[in-house]
Amino acid sequence: MAAMSAPALVPPTARPRAVSNWLLTLCALIFVMVVVGGITRLTESGLSITEWKPITGAIPPLTQAQWQHQFELYQRIPEYQQLNRGMTLDEFKNIFFWEWAHRQLGRVIGLVALLPLVWFAAKKAIPRGYGWRTGIIFLLVCVQGAIGWWMVASGLTERTDVSHVRLAVHLLTALVILSFTLWTALDLRSEGAVPRKVPTLGLWAFAALFVQLLFGAYVAGLDAGYAFDTWPLMGDELYPAAAPWLEPFVRNFVDNPVTVQFVHRWWAWVVLVFAVVLARKVRPSSRRHSIALHSAIGAQILLGIWTLLSGVKLHVAVAHQATAVLVVASFVAAIHRLAVPGRVTERAAPLVPSTAEGL
């Protein structure tokens, strides 16, 4: 009887594989976005565009007069007046490019999140139980654009850089969107496209990883990677006794570059423990998920150490940030592999074999 009622609960036009492919494409674009965002931050390019024009801003300056106007706007902010006074127009064009490319990618991601969503919805190709999820993904992408401007705005009046707290919100939101999108895509590819519940181990692993990513964002925002370029000790000590200490105590875990770098160094090993446990748990059912998780976390720790020892060389630091995204993806994939199907309801009905096929 249940098998007879399933087709009535699922639109015969549902195409879970196609919707999953769209979401995986979105994940790939978010990966590129985070990498370009890292380059933008490391090259101090984020404040080169001082206006937020979501539509007209897609067109870069085309004439000498337009370039001069953008440069004059930049010359009004503290970063130029206190740090970059004397910068030439050609030097300005270099930093402008990265911020423009970052924003342009944001526009592309917005279109990729919206247009296929509208098309799939019109064709009734989204399986039941996934319409609200894909809608939330689009809304999160829109919110992320607003967060990006909120971050930039923090560095336009009184500061010579953006708020590291706002930068952390911006980066973590991107990674939350990536995780939610990837989980949804994997749900759609699972047997029957039945949504899966995050296991308890997965929740703890995500929490540990979130803490590490948060402190990684603080390290980037505070330029804390430059505080000490030695490893495993910070100079000659585990924690430098002469380092300044902020009051109240909790501020050190947000605003003190030395403390932030210290936590980011050593919390990595907590994340490593979770990664090893997850890899061992998932290995019996999927050796490739286990290998991917081991590889991503191992490469990330080595790149983190290399970033410090290199004095935060651009290509090393960018590779470190890019690999962080791969770590997040490998955690999501491994945890999803361990997850169990949730309760099937009319809102999230399983697909019958005839509708489970993709393109």
Rank of each mutant, 00 (worst) to 15 (best):
A6D: 10
L9P: 00
S20I: 05
W22H: 04
I30T: 07
F31P: 05
V35F: 09
G37M: 01
G38M: 05
G46H: 00
L62P: 10
T63C: 11
E72S: 11
E72Q: 14
P78Q: 03
E79N: 06
L89S: 01
W100K: 02
K123R: 15
I126Y: 06
I126H: 04
T134V: 15
F138W: 13
L140P: 03
V141W: 13
V141A: 12
I147P: 02
I147E: 04
A153R: 08
V165N: 00
V165F: 07
L171A: 04
V176K: 10
T181D: 02
R189S: 06
A193S: 15
P195W: 02
P199F: 03
T200C: 12
L203F: 06
W204G: 05
W204K: 06
F206H: 11
D229M: 15
A243M: 12
W245T: 10
R251T: 00
F253I: 04
Q261D: 09
V263A: 11
R265V: 11
W266Q: 13
W267K: 01
A268F: 12
V270D: 13
P284T: 09
R288Q: 15
S310D: 15
H315R: 08
V318P: 04
L326K: 08
R337M: 13
L338Q: 11
G342Y: 02
T345S: 08
E346N: 14
